[in-house]
Simulated scan of single mutants.
Amino acid sequence: MPTLDPRIDAYIEGAPEFAQPLLRHWRAQVHAACPEVEETMKWSRPHFMYGGKILTGMSAFKAHCGFGFWNDQAVDESDRKDGAMGQLGRVSTLKDLPNQRELRVMIKRAAELIASGAKPPRMAQRSAERKPPPEIPSDLAAALKANAAARQVFEGFPPGAQREYVEWIIEAKKEETRLKRLVQAVEWIAEGKRRNWKYENC
């Protein structure tokens, strides 16, 4: 019998009614195809681990579910994604998923990739293409200059962590939203927190 994480039970029970059978189906297929998986919660969403690494994960939204593999090579996306989380697009019924045989082939393929040590293409690309440090917008630069603690922490962040804050601020569509994010950013930075600190220990 598989070992089930009660947090995932709670997640499924709290998901929209249409999503519950989809989440249960995916969970059952993962355990059937790879009995060695271990369940856990990461970033507040159910994940399945194999060999200490993420095999696959699932998420429920208001009108669809997202299912995907950590290593994209486990599945041929073939235009399924549609901007949705995961590689299988927006799934709202069981008919939107591959059939049971195809699903299990994907899951086994994902486990084989982990066992072989293969890195997801996106991770290999990130390693090969290091982005330069972000350009700090003037309002953030001024706010950091006015707060010595925040400035010191921000300067110690790696470029990726700096970029997360910069993008969050410049993507605000309204000036009032930008100002609110700016104030919140400086407060979090002064406390040594990264932009997505809430999810780092999930």
Rank of each mutant, 00 (worst) to 15 (best):
K180I: 08
G83I: 05
C65N: 06
R7N: 13
K198L: 11
W197I: 08
D9N: 12
P120E: 03
N201T: 08
G52A: 08
V186I: 14
N196S: 11
A190R: 04
E36M: 15
F18M: 09
Q162W: 01
T3Q: 14
W197S: 11
L88F: 10
K145I: 01
N99G: 14
K42W: 02
I12F: 04
P21Y: 07
P35S: 13
P6W: 05
V75M: 10
L23P: 01
R181K: 14
T93P: 15
R45V: 11
R163P: 01
A74N: 01
L179R: 15
T40H: 12
S138E: 05
P21V: 13
L94T: 13
P21E: 09
E17M: 09
A74Q: 09
A19W: 10
Y199R: 09
F48I: 06
P132F: 04
A190H: 04
K95R: 15
P16A: 03
I136F: 03
K180R: 11
K173L: 02
T40N: 11
H31S: 13
K42D: 06
F157Y: 02
E129L: 14
A60P: 04
I8W: 08
F18N: 13
K119T: 03
P133S: 05
G89Q: 12
E176N: 12
G66F: 05
Y11F: 08
A150G: 09
E13K: 11
A15P: 05
K145F: 01
Q87I: 07
K180T: 12
G86A: 10
S116H: 01
K173S: 08
K119N: 08
E13P: 02
Q125I: 00
P121D: 05
W70I: 04
A142I: 02
Q73K: 10
A110Q: 00
Y50E: 07
L182D: 04
G192H: 08
G117A: 07
A148I: 08
I114C: 00
G68D: 03
L94Y: 05
K81R: 14
I136N: 01
E167N: 05
Q29R: 15
P159E: 03
E135I: 03
E155W: 04
R126P: 00
E129H: 12
L55F: 07
G160S: 05
T93H: 15
Y11N: 06
A10G: 04
A161P: 05
F67C: 09
R90M: 13
G83H: 10
D9C: 10
W188L: 09
V105W: 03
S59D: 02
G57D: 00
D82N: 14
R178L: 03
E102H: 11
I189S: 04
R122I: 01
H47A: 12
D82I: 04
F67Q: 06
L144H: 09
V153N: 09
R109V: 00
Y199F: 03
E102F: 09
P132H: 07
H31A: 11
M49Q: 07
P6D: 11
A143W: 02
V30E: 10
S138H: 03
K108H: 02
E135L: 02
M123H: 08
R126C: 00
L97M: 15
P16N: 15
